[in-house]
Design a binder for these strands. Sequence first.
DNA 1: CAAGCTTCCTGCATGC
DNA 2: TGCATGCAGGAAGCTT
Length: 326
Amino acid sequence: MPELPEVEVVRAGLAPAVTGARVVAAEVRDPRALKRHVPLGGDDGLGGHGVTLPAEAAATRAADFERRVTGLTLGSPARRGKFMWVPVAAERPTAEPWSLLAHLGMSGQLLLRDTTALDDRHVRIRLWIEHPTHGELRLDFADQRLFGSLALDRLAPTPDGAPGGFGGDAEVPALLPVQAARIARDPLDPHFDDAEFVASARRRGSGIKQLLLDQSLVSGVGNIYADEALWRARMHPETPGRRISAARLTELLALLRDVFAQALAEGGTSFDEQYVNVNGQAGYFSRYLHSYGRTAEPCDRCGTKIERIPFAGRSSHFCPKCQRLR
DNA sequence: CAAGCTTCCTGCATGC
DNA sequence: TGCATGCAGGAAGCTT
């Protein structure tokens, strides 16, 4: 399940291969992988997410994407939370800036393959790219469960004038894909505002787990890293935000950064083989999980059995002794 | 504005 | 064996 560390591994893996490359051809095999793509000439009236596409609209969307992505020259990939995008070179200096946007959902993969490689499973969209030094490559978007998607999306200026997101060594302009406008900065972003997160969280009555998953407060956190950060902070997932001190929330952010950094160093978490890097390889952080997916196993701190409680149609995992609700 | 629910989707595990 | 059911997840877009 790609969360911030997994998306960052993919972004970094993509960078050397796509920066400066030109898209020479495109094939949309399944238009459902274009959920976030809005065809030019206005909205097709169908919105994106949560709408089953009638066949005609799906075909229009696929054709529009294939036509417009072909010939584009790609820039340096950037990321904010779980959203990732590659700016595309403008045809005219005055033209509006656009990007190729990717969200991996929960099973999306971006795979760099040799042009002669056999198909991976669930390839939904294929781009053939030509790089000045690496030659011709395939960039395949594979996605079993179709919660992810690619799109061409306009870039808009960031309200704070700071870079749109993280781009490794490359400088990221102060632009953000329109679809990521409501996504907060992530904790690894130097422009993330700890005080603003703390203040927002303390205004809310929802449980801290819920708040960590709210991408408008802090981005990049999913079910795995929310549970892991809360385990480290010894915080019960249902503790209301407004009952947590500013100091404890600041501490939680620091621990979240620690978990992210360690996961990144291990190449991410490949919990059920859904996540792989651009070469199809799994990450190793699942070995170091303390709470997520460890129901009934002993807590690494105190030996008490980890509990699983239902939460918003999924699960929270925590140690009932270390993480008390008071 | 906040909070809760539903929707999109497939593959695997479980139960009868 | 074969079928039905449940579950996993992110984020948008509803309603309350």
